[in-house]
Computed example of a mutant assay.
Amino acid sequence: MKDEKYNRSIGLQCPTCGCTSYEYEHGVDETIEVAKCASCGREITKDELLQENSENIQEHISEVGKQVTDDLAKELKASLKKAFKGSKSIRIK
């Protein structure tokens, strides 16, 4: 199974205006501490931004989980069909 298929990039929206463009202020160790909305200028911490977008993030996680489950089921079915190919007493639908 190819993992690249399940990578997602989620645009985090400003809770005030819905914009997805930010200017970032980096902390001591190059991690983002404060994001400033490019549209309305609201400053928000990384944690607050993630919390405000948690519903959107969870929806993407659910979509990827469903896709992984469906793909695994298809792979399992295909491998079982291949393993029991030619067997007269076992049929896989």
Rank of each mutant, 00 (worst) to 15 (best):
K46T: 14
C14V: 05
V64A: 06
D47E: 15
G18D: 09
A38C: 10
S21L: 11
L72W: 09
L72G: 01
T69N: 10
E30N: 14
D70Y: 05
E43S: 12
T69L: 11
C40L: 03
I61A: 11
E30G: 00
A73K: 05
L50Q: 12
A83K: 15
A78Y: 03
T69K: 12
P15C: 08
K88A: 10
R91M: 05
I10V: 13
A38R: 13
A35P: 00
E33D: 13
K81S: 03
K77Q: 13
Y22K: 04
L80F: 14
T16Q: 14
K74A: 13
S39F: 09
R8W: 07
A38T: 04
E30S: 10
G11W: 01
V34K: 05
E63Q: 15
C17M: 08
L72N: 07
F84Q: 05
R91H: 14
T69R: 12
S54W: 06
K66C: 01
L80K: 02
S21W: 08
Q67V: 01
K88C: 02
K46M: 12
L49R: 02
N7R: 14
G27C: 04
E59A: 15
G86F: 08
I92L: 15
Y6F: 15
A78H: 07
E25K: 15
A38N: 11
I90H: 07
D29K: 10
M1L: 12
V28M: 10
G18N: 12
E43N: 08
K2N: 15
S39C: 09
S79N: 07
G65M: 04
C14W: 06
N56V: 09
L80V: 00
S87F: 11
E25M: 05
V28D: 14
T31M: 06
D70K: 05
K66T: 08
K74N: 06
E75H: 00
R42H: 06
C17S: 04
H26M: 12
E63S: 09
M1H: 06
G86T: 03
A83F: 05
E48D: 15
L80G: 00
K5A: 08
K36G: 00
K46H: 14
G11V: 00
K93W: 07
G11F: 09
E30A: 05
V34P: 01
I32D: 07
P15S: 09
L12K: 03
L12P: 02
E23W: 15
C37R: 02
V34Y: 10
C14N: 06
S89P: 01
G41S: 01
Q51R: 13
L49K: 00
A78Q: 14
G65F: 02
S39M: 06
